[in-house]
């Protein structure tokens, strides 16, 4: 960015000033549009519930309290969904990262029997798919519908992640691996002691992408778990709540301590939306680097 300092910065013409003002204003506006909805949702969840019900909260919160978030734990369907979502996010992501790391490492080994054939057989699955319904019929046949493992098993092998890991490992100097092999380390030891520690950045990148995808999953819950409401993911549950108020009323009554008068459907909808959003908002600034690296890696395919 030094070019700017040497160039346009030193002598600021009137045109530059106008340009900067207009440019910055446009970006401020767009950024505002991106974050205001979440601010609006948030102030409605922490304001006085009767004012929220009367549509009185528009720009700033009134009568701040956090009871709505506490009350959510009594909405039984919701607590179920959040447990399922956390479980699949943690387990699904961890296993996916392990599989990707291992598969990525193995595919860098030229000695493997028919390596390029197997590698291509895995990678080519990125470019075609049988379609939603055959996939569903397959899952049905495997007994993975209405079954928690239906969330985990299909997401373990992600060819794209395997490519990313493979490309990354290939950029690690092979002398490290060779010297370890000469010292008598097995492939497994090389993997755990050398490859994994050195590939942490790429593994972190695929982990954050995997975690976000798991957290936001709607389709598989919708299609596979149709008969098991106890396995609905958070997004699925939120969608149901957003569409119908009657479900919500029942769920609210099922929680004993919540008085239906204090909570209304609007507040509950907004609060659950915020609960779905907050983890990502909290994690995102710390992980932004990995997210951005991820999209850049997309350009380097192997």
């Amino acid at each position: 960015m030094s070019r700017k300092k040497s160039g346009s910065f030193i002598k600021k013409s009137a045109g530059d000033v106008v340009f900067n003002v207009v440019n910055i204003t446009v970006f401020v506006l767009f950024t505002f549009i991106c974050i205001f909805p979440f601010y609006y949702l948030f102030i409605n969840t922490i304001s006085d519930n009767s004012l929220v019900a009367a549509n009185q909260i528009t720009l700033y919160p009134v009568g701040i309290h956090f009871d709505n978030y506490i009350a959510l734990k009594d909405v039984s369907d919701f607590s179920n969904s959040i447990m399922v979502t956390i479980a699949r996010t943690v387990l699904g992501t961890a296993l996916m990262v392990i599989v990707s790391a291992f598969a990525g490492y193995l595919t860098t080994k030229r000695e493997m029997w028919k390596r390029s054939f197997w590698y291509r057989a895995v990678v080519v699955t990125m470019y075609f798919n049988a379609g939603l319904i055959p996939w569903y019929m397959n899952m049905l046949g495997l007994g993975l519908t209405d079954n928690f493992w239906g969330y985990i098993l299909p997401c373990l092998v992600v060819p794209y992640n395997i490519i990313l890991v493979k490309t990354y490992i290939e950029s690690i100097p092979s002398s490290l691996e060779e010297s370890a092999t000469i010292d008598g380390a097995s492939a497994m030891q090389v993997f755990t002691k050398i490859i994994v520690p050195l590939s942490k950045p790429i593994l972190a990148t695929i982990a954050v992408f995997g975690a976000v995808a798991n957290w936001n999953s709607l389709q598989d819950s919708l299609i596979l778990m149709a008969n098991s409401p106890e396995l609905y993911t958070l997004q699925h549950r939120l969608w149901i709540y957003l569409n119908t108020s009657s479900n919500l009323a029942t769920a609210m009554q099922s929680g004993g301590t919540v008085t239906a008068a204090a909570l209304n459907t609007k507040v509950i909808k907004y609060t659950i939306s915020m609960v779905t959003v907050i983890p990502i908002m909290l994690v995102y600034p710390f992980m932004q680097r990995y997210f951005e690296e991820g999209i850049m890696l997309g350009a380097v395919k192997g």
Binding site: L41, W215, N216, S217, L218, Q235, H236, L238, W239, L242, K269, Y270, S273, T276, V277, I280
Partner: peptide, 8 residues
């Protein structure tokens, strides 16, 4: 954020 959240 998922599309459900966008819908929210």
């Amino acid at each position: 954020l998922g599309w459900v959240v966008v819908y929210a």
